[in-house]
Amino acid sequence: MRLTLFNVVVAVIIAIAFAAVNAAYLVWAERRGAARIQRRPGPNINGPFGLLQPPLDGIKLMAKQLTIPGGADKILFIAAPVLAMFPAIMSFVTIPFSENIVAKNMNVGVLMIFAFAALGSTSLLFAGWSSRNKYAMMASIRAVSQTVAYEIPMLITTITVVMIAGSMDLMEIVHQQSGSILSWNIFPLFGRSHNILMPMSFLIFFTCTLAETNRAPFDLGEAESELVAGFHTEYGSMGFGLFFMGEYANIVIGSCMTTILFLGGWGCPFGLFPGVWWFIIKLYLLIATFIWIRWTFPRTTIYGLLNLSWKILIPLSLFNLLFTAGLLKVF
């Protein structure tokens, strides 16, 4: 693909559209999924299967006034929801969906995605801090300590994968795993490392994704039974809408990363017909797991959550990093 300005602009627009549509329709999927789990119909009035629900919700939210509480820090209050959505969308630019479908491949793709992911926590901090609401403040402090705690095992696990692939290029990482399910990083019998601990790494990464995206059972940032609505307590209108969509965009990014780093990207489990459809299937299976987990588990405590990261996930991921390094030296 030749890199012209036109190409890049089109690709970026498509990436943004993909992120936005995904975010909007994941809300629908979440509601339908929750309804299925809870044995009720869910949104099914607007359009076939309630498919018109997300745009209608969007219109409703946009028609509302954005109220800014008195005494709030106005600039940060307005900046926070934008900051929640922006990094997620930007991350899509570098994600390769297949051999050819990628907006802009970079040799430091992994780094870029994590840099943008780190920006996400500032939006939570801004939102809670600027709202002048004690619930929001407490929630944002929780959310930031949580994000910091879980970024570490997540990065260590990613470094393990990067080490195996020998590259930070997402394309390259997927190419490393080409072949059948046995060469994927989740179960790398034919891969470079032959590391039997990789399934554990996959679970660590997945858990961290759950925590990073503030999803149940780690949704302490918006624990609605305790902190009303958490960091977005004071937000209404599209400010709330952006937070909401940002959360789902982050889920998509997290699932994309899991797919690329561990599940062989667009590779077929049997080594046949690799293509974007495999990527999509894996992506949505992971997202369905997200939804499934959210509607099954109760919420953890903040200390249980931090202990899990600092006392279990970080030591385990560090051990696996060293173990993998040793294996790479041997084989």
């Binding site: 929750a34 789990i37 009720r40 059972p217 949704d219 509607w295 099954t296 109760p298 919420r299």
Partner: peptide
Amino acid sequence: LGGFSPLMY
């Protein structure tokens, strides 16, 4: 405690 589904059941 943050678990929603049991209420519906």
